[in-house]
Each structure stands twice: as structure tokens, then as C-alpha cells.
Computed example of a mutant assay.
Amino acid sequence: MPLTVEEYQVAQLYSVAEASKNETGGGEGIEVIKNEPFEDHPLLGDEYSNGQYTYKIYHLKSKVPSFIRLLAPEGALEMHEEAWNAYPYCRTIISNPGYMKENFYITVESLHVEDDGESENNPTYMKKNFTITVETFHLDDKGTMENVHRLSEEKLKEREVVNIDISNDPVRNTDYKAEEDPSKFKSEKTGRGPLQGPEWWKKCEPVMTCYKLVTCEFKWFGLQTRIEKFIMDAQRRLFTNLHRQVFCWIDGWHGMDMTDIRRLEDATKSELDEQRHSGAVRGTKSE
């Protein structure tokens, strides 16, 4: 990413708010239940304990594969998300209390750190019937760190490294927008971009890398392989599209501070409530 770690905090929150509006309409999308400060909620040991808590419900129908829609009863396509954002650390837990209950969990662990040679991470693997753990580092480097997640030798042998290049990687035709193409976009505010050529990150400043560790477990007889593949494909699609937007929307968020972001989130909540109950289904659809 052609950003600093400090810029990314605002950029990500701005982009999540804007992307939420693009994904909400016609009875589907995102409902924000709570968005408030929290204190004394220990995260990553006791290192982080204060920040912003959000509780959202994702109303999904067209955004999951057709074979899941055929199998899933009413309520099964409603996901609940709780997030404790103590930037630079954030923990997100997604569940499906209406159907799968304790058998479904997605856990996202994110840590944003400077590349000072002291990055630490002790991955936690939840042993439930369904678990995804995503642990994220955002570092001011050019993607050269081999084991930022401090995996054991055993885990390193199992790990598959997937590099995501927000400028050169292909996106689906249904996802592509010329104005969100980093290879074509140039920021008026910062002069950054377009991001062109192989290994463009070696030729631009600032630059940071998002290191993500994704582990997935799913236990549902007859569907494990298909669901795990769908999850991994969906994660890559999400990471690619969102981070293309984070950069190409830079003229929208650059210069904002966290007070501006909270105002935007409040306004977005009201807009999502209105959009969800009117109009047509919007945004990403599964094939």
C-alpha cells in the first residue's frame, strides 16, 4: 500500500464506511447496532484494552453461493460481527447465533505496527467447528519479511503464501471500476499514483505491506472442502477490492482525523438503515 501506517487507520475506517453503503439495499446489507468507546477489555494479553467497539449485523442472501442458499434455512444467512478496535490492534468476531450458534466463528486479529524489528505476534487458533483467524500486520516495508507471524516450523510447512498486488492482480469483471483501478488513478491531493509496472512498490514512497495470516476450519459433513475454498476465495476477493478502494479513495479521506471519521460513521449508520429497507440489492454478489 502506498500509505503510512498512520494514514491507514483513517483510510481503512473511511473505506469500510463507504463500502458498507455500496453493499446495502433491498433488504440486504449492513446494520450497525453499536459504535461506542470501550475500556478495560484486555486484548492481546493486557497490552491493549481501550478503543472503539462496534456491533454489526450482516443481512446476506445474494452474497453467498447458490448451493448455500438452497441448504440454509431462514436466519442462517444473518451474520453478527463484534469488533474491538484498539488501534493499532483490533479483534473481530463473526458468528451466526440464529442457526449455527457455537459451531460457527470467524475471528479476525489485526495488528498494525512500525517496521522497527520488534514486531511480535503469537497466533491463536480457535478449535471450534468453524473458525477463521485472520491476523494482520501493517508494516512500513516492501513485503520482504518472511515470517512476520512468528509461525513454528511445522506451521510454516503448512502455510501457503499469497501475494496480493492491488494494481496488477486481476479482479472480476463484476467488481471492476475504472475509477478504482490503482494502475490508472492519480491522487490530486497527494500526487500519488498511478501504480504502474511490476513491483511498483519498489519505486514509491511511502509504502507499507499488509501481512495477513488466514486459517480456516469448517466442520459440516459433505461441505467442508467447498466451504473452505469459498471462504479463501472470498477473503482474497475482499482484501483485493477493499485495498484498491482504500488507495483510490485517498482524495476523500486524506486530511481527515478520527473526529471526522466518527461523524462519518454516525451519518453512515442512518444512511444504512434507510438503504436497507428500500431500493434494490446492491454491491458484491456471489456466483
Score class of each variant (00 low, 15 high):
N122K: 15
L77F: 00
L111I: 02
P65H: 10
G75Q: 01
K212H: 10
G222T: 03
N22S: 15
Y105N: 12
A267I: 02
E158P: 08
R226Q: 14
V134W: 02
T4Q: 02
S286R: 11
W84D: 06
I164N: 02
R276E: 05
P170C: 10
E153L: 02
F104S: 01
M208N: 10
K202N: 14
L60G: 06
S119R: 10
P73Y: 00
E18M: 14
K127L: 13
D46V: 02
D141P: 14
A11P: 10
F104I: 01
F221K: 15
Y53R: 03
L238N: 11
Q235W: 06
T240Q: 09
S278G: 02
S270A: 15
M126S: 14
D140R: 00
T259D: 13
E287C: 11
Y211A: 06
E7S: 04
P198G: 04
I33K: 13
R159P: 08
V108E: 13
L195I: 05
N50H: 12
L44H: 13
H80F: 14
S49N: 13
S187F: 10
E82L: 07
S167T: 01
T284F: 15
K101Y: 00
Y53T: 06
K212P: 03
V108I: 14
S286E: 13
Y176F: 11
K186A: 15
H80P: 08
A267H: 08
T144G: 10
R237W: 07
E180D: 13
P206D: 08
D273P: 07
V5H: 07
G252R: 13
S278T: 13
G51Y: 01
G51E: 04
D169Y: 05
K61T: 12
E7L: 06
Q9I: 05
F104C: 03
L156K: 15
N129P: 03
T92A: 03
K127G: 09
D116M: 09
E31R: 13
R276G: 07
G143E: 02
Y53N: 05
F185Y: 13
M256L: 14
P206H: 06
K155Y: 07
P97Y: 03
G279H: 10
Y58P: 04
N122I: 09
E199I: 07
E109M: 00
R236Y: 12
A86E: 10
S119N: 11
D251P: 07
N121A: 08
R236D: 02
N173Y: 04
I30H: 08
Y58C: 07
R226H: 14
F185W: 03
S119D: 10
